[in-house]
Design a protein around this nucleic acid. Structure first.
Lengths: 342, 342
DNA sequence: GGCCCGCGTGACAACGTTGTCAACGTGGCC
DNA sequence: GGCCACGTTGACAACGTTGTCACGCGGGCC
């Protein structure tokens, strides 16, 4: 028995199984025209020799890379969950993942993407906000006819190669929940204007406001930039109003955390004097004080589905009729409560 | 002028530059024996044709992958910063990154790593805690003689292919800071026992305690598992003691956040009645209430250095004499203050 | 019975680079 | 002047797979 076994190659397998190299290749690639008996013999031989296909050779010969590219903004904060979801799907389909963060103000992103596709370094791209809202990027993708799937683009209806969530409906429901708790002075901190899913969240808020017969005031719908800092700044401004809102709904959790910090600094008690709501359910949401009521965006599921869709696309299949909108669910914690009596 | 230009290949460049394919290859790989004039001509030709080397062909011919593998635990929470640091270094050296999360209880990690190396899918591995503390994993790595660099292994001295931080010294300093604030009843929440860097943090705490002439009590040095939940549980237990500690130093920020939540629930004011300190400076640390005093672990820098080291290793070079211990720095925020008078 | 078609298989040429080795020219040294 | 060493270059064969096409064989159809 040999201690050092040289790496088995496809022709070793072919020889042992008594077939040609090509037939082994067919088995490897699950091609249909192979006799079951032959297939078994080949598979047994692969097992015996512990054969693993050489990915570099496959890449060169097939002109594919078996890699998906994940393009995201370097400090998005959500990336871990997305990445994990994508990896699950990749693993199941024997793809690997190449990750490509884009730094802020990195003007060469289109060029870099162009190279990833045409080099080729990846077979397809998974695009996340805010990258999907950068027109230069989407132009390049379209020009190269690069296979992609977008996560959390504005509307899933317009682009069959995208997955999203029901931002609008979820925010409408949550707003009604606040109304039911007795709140009448409800503020909404809007997110980054370029980010279309954020726009949908605001629309859901307005839907509910209109349905509840509440007036929408400009002073109560300020716009942040999705950051904690903007939340803190805007929270301060809102709480300085007279009368101040009794509930502040933020388009994401980071801004909600900022609002909570502003409230704490001003000695405003949560939820006694002020209810705060976020969106996303980032890991931090349940770990701040008080635990934040929010809406859980199923990023992991969305990402997994996105990767599956992309692989379908790479195989030349249809998007399929699977639901591409995955519901976000309310998570009621302790940052919300009945409206204070005036 | 052609709209659709077929992808330029190395022989196109060779033809245009009037040299052989091999010479172009030499220029591409920065081999020394090329006349400057020739080099310039080739580079000009590459520029003209917008030539990009085909990574699949390079991989096959050179038996390298130009990929580094990042192995980490799926819900480590620190991964984003590490990943970004690694990517910076990769980008500079024209490497790409393959990420490989390991789920809890995934017993096949050794097998998967073995395949990554021998397939080959990656040229080398960057290993992070807790993976570096799994003996089965490290056995496989050693057996395959796989090039790797470890991040935050126990001691950098023992393994030249590792980077770390000064956990012990930083914790010693922070403990002295608490003593200077007048604290005498200081608890320390220890981290996951298998995680050696966590052990060093505790040692630093003990150093300072001894230096300050304070007694170490078993009841005040409980052990958690690095999670928020364990921090909350242990915080509750510590605050139920009589007398309770006036300061709680946690081996990481997640547990510190748990302790803060326990304190809030019991109506214990921070920092009025209790000072809380963490370690890591995760993004959340500055965004909880009150903002957490902690120690910033330079994960990004460590990761960048790790990737650079790995690439050196892949080139057959020495580790070099660059400092492989990057200092963690105290970050004084609002969760710490003078000890309450009894 | 001849024809055609489809299934299972194999021979052979790609794929675009890098590694090996040999060839060439130039200059220094005996 | 002949020889060797060295710096520069090229011809050619790898690298391990997949794509293309052709082949043989059996069965159904007229």
């Amino acid at each position: 028995m040999s201690i050092v076994t040289k790496k088995a190659t496809i022709s070793d397998v072919a020889e042992l199984a008594g077939v040609s190299i090509k037939t082994v290749s067919r088995v490897l690639n699950h091609e249909p025209r192979v006799l079951p008996a032959t297939r078994d013999r080949v598979q047994a031989a692969m097992e015996t020799l512990r054969y693993r296909p050489n990915s570099s050779a496959r890449r060169l010969a097939s002109n594919r890379t078996f890699l998906l590219g994940l393009v995201y903004h370097a400090n998005s904060g959500y990336i871990t969950r997305i990445q994990n979801g994508v990896l699950e799907a990749c693993h199941a389909e024997h793809y690997d993942l190449l990750i490509h963060p884009s730094a802020t103000g990195c003007s060469d992103l289109p060029e870099e993407i162009s190279q990833m596709i045409s080099q080729p370094k990846v077979d397809g791209l998974i695009l996340t906000p805010p990258v999907i809202h950068m027109t230069e990027v989407m132009d390049v993708v379209a020009r190269l006819d690069a296979p992609y799937v977008a996560i959390a683009r504005a509307s899933v209806e317009e682009d069959p190669w995208s997955v999203g969530t029901n931002d609008r409906q979820a925010c409408r429901d949550m707003t009604h929940h606040l109304v039911d708790l007795g709140h009448r002075r409800i503020a909404f901190v809007r997110g980054n204007p370029g980010h279309l899913a954020m726009g949908n969240r605001f629309l859901g808020f307005r839907d509910a406001l209109a349905e509840a017969g509440l007036e929408e005031r400009t002073a109560w719908t300020p716009t942040g930039d999705n950051s904690f800092e903007s939340g803190e700044r805007i929270g301060n401004a809102l709480l300085a109003l007279d009368p101040p809102p009794t509930a502040i709904f933020c388009a994401n959790d980071h801004m909600a955390a900022g609002v909570m910090t502003a409230a704490h600094r001003r000695g405003v008690s949560i939820p006694g004097q002020l209810s705060v709501v976020g969106f996303d359910d980032i890991p931090m949401a349940g770990r701040v004080w008080p635990p934040l009521t929010t809406i859980r965006q199923p990023l992991g599921q969305m990402a997994r589905l996105a990767a599956q869709l992309l692989i379908r696309r790479l195989r030349g299949q249809d998007p399929g009729d699977e639901e591409r909108v995955i519901s976000s669910q309310p998570v009621l914690r302790e940052s919300t409560g009945p409206a204070p009596r005036d």
